[in-house]
């Protein structure tokens, strides 16, 4: 484990990702202290250009709300949506993939057909349907994002289980008289987890992007200060006051980049042998 940490620390891109991610987390934590007022309340004249020394360092949007306050509070929302949706998606994916991979046969067939049904539909379209049917408050949106993004995790977990279930150590557990569930979750899963953890970073990035995309179409929860909502609001003034959309856009870009870099760094740290060989 310390070896993995050391390998992670030696990877500059992964460290950059970690620093960016920590910065976003810091923004989320500092939001209530720096901007104690509701970020969606009117703060001043609408569409003021960013002025780093002034009252609104990042300007105001077309309703006269403070963009800086929305960015900081939006960090909270984006991270929360990312984490919760990823947890839901990974949990479903692991259970489906583990059962399918371990048992094989008709259980595998049934679970994989369901997975394929989810995979063949573009997940954003499915998300739109779910939000259209169940409404668009923040909880529904988060759960819906989790529900549409598990199939890839399930496939990954299944592939790991398929190779691991025939290992001799699994047979040894069966010979000892261990029950199936214990073998699946206590013995095989820890060995199957590293690639799934790495993939979780991809899911998290996708979750943040999906929420922004919904918000851009004004289909996310309008009562919270999310980055996507801000971009959606700026859409109407995009040609002149482009900063209204660009600032949250950059925030999303940096967050997704941070999460991806951390994921890639984790991948290199956990699977050192898969890295390209250094040139002799």
């Amino acid at each position: 484990m310390t070896g993995s940490l050391a390998r992670y620390a030696k990877n500059p891109a992964a460290l950059l990702g970690l620093v960016l991610l920590l910065a976003v987390i810091a923004m989320a934590l500092l939001a209530p202290i720096l901007f104690p007022k509701d970020p969606l309340s009117l703060a001043g004249r609408p569409l003021q250009w960013p002025d780093l020394g002034g009252r609104f360092p990042l300007g105001t949007d077309n309703s006269g709300r403070d963009i800086a306050a929305q960015i900081f509070h939006g960090a909270q929302v984006s991270l929360l949506i990312g984490l919760v949706a990823t947890t839901i998606s990974i949990a479903i994916g692991i259970v489906v993939g583990a059962l399918a991979g371990f048992y094989g046969g008709w259980i595998d067939d049934a679970l994989m057909r369901v997975t394929e049904a989810f995979q063949t539909l573009p997940n954003f379209l499915l998300l739109l349907v779910l939000v259209a049917v169940f409404g668009s408050d923040i909880t529904t949106v988060t759960v819906a994002i989790g529900l549409v993004s598990w199939p890839a995790t399930a496939r990954l977990t299944r592939a790991e289980f398929l190779t691991l279930r025939n290992r001799e150590f699994v047979q040894a557990c069966r010979v000892l008289g261990m029950g199936d569930l214990r073998i699946i979750f206590r013995e095989i899963l820890p060995n199957a987890l590293p690639p799934v953890i790495v993939y979780a970073s991809v899911v998290m990035a996708i979750a943040i992007l999906l929420e922004s995309a919904l918000a851009f179409l004004s289909l996310s929860d309008p009562n919270i200060a999310s980055w996507g909502n801000l971009i959606g609001a700026g859409r109407n003034v995009l040609r002149v006051q482009w900063y209204v959309s660009a600032i949250p856009g950059v925030a999303i870009l940096l967050t997704v980049l941070a999460v991806s870099l951390v994921g890639q760094g984790l991948n290199d740290a956990l699977n050192p042998r898969l890295r390209r060989n250094p040139k002799p």
Partner: peptide
């Protein structure tokens, strides 16, 4: 199971690396 036990071939694959 306790009455009949097995020793496996591959000393690398037969032990769970995470235990």
């Amino acid at each position: 199971a306790r009455r009949i036990q097995m020793v496996f071939q591959d000393p690398y694959a037969s032990l769970n690396p995470r235990r």
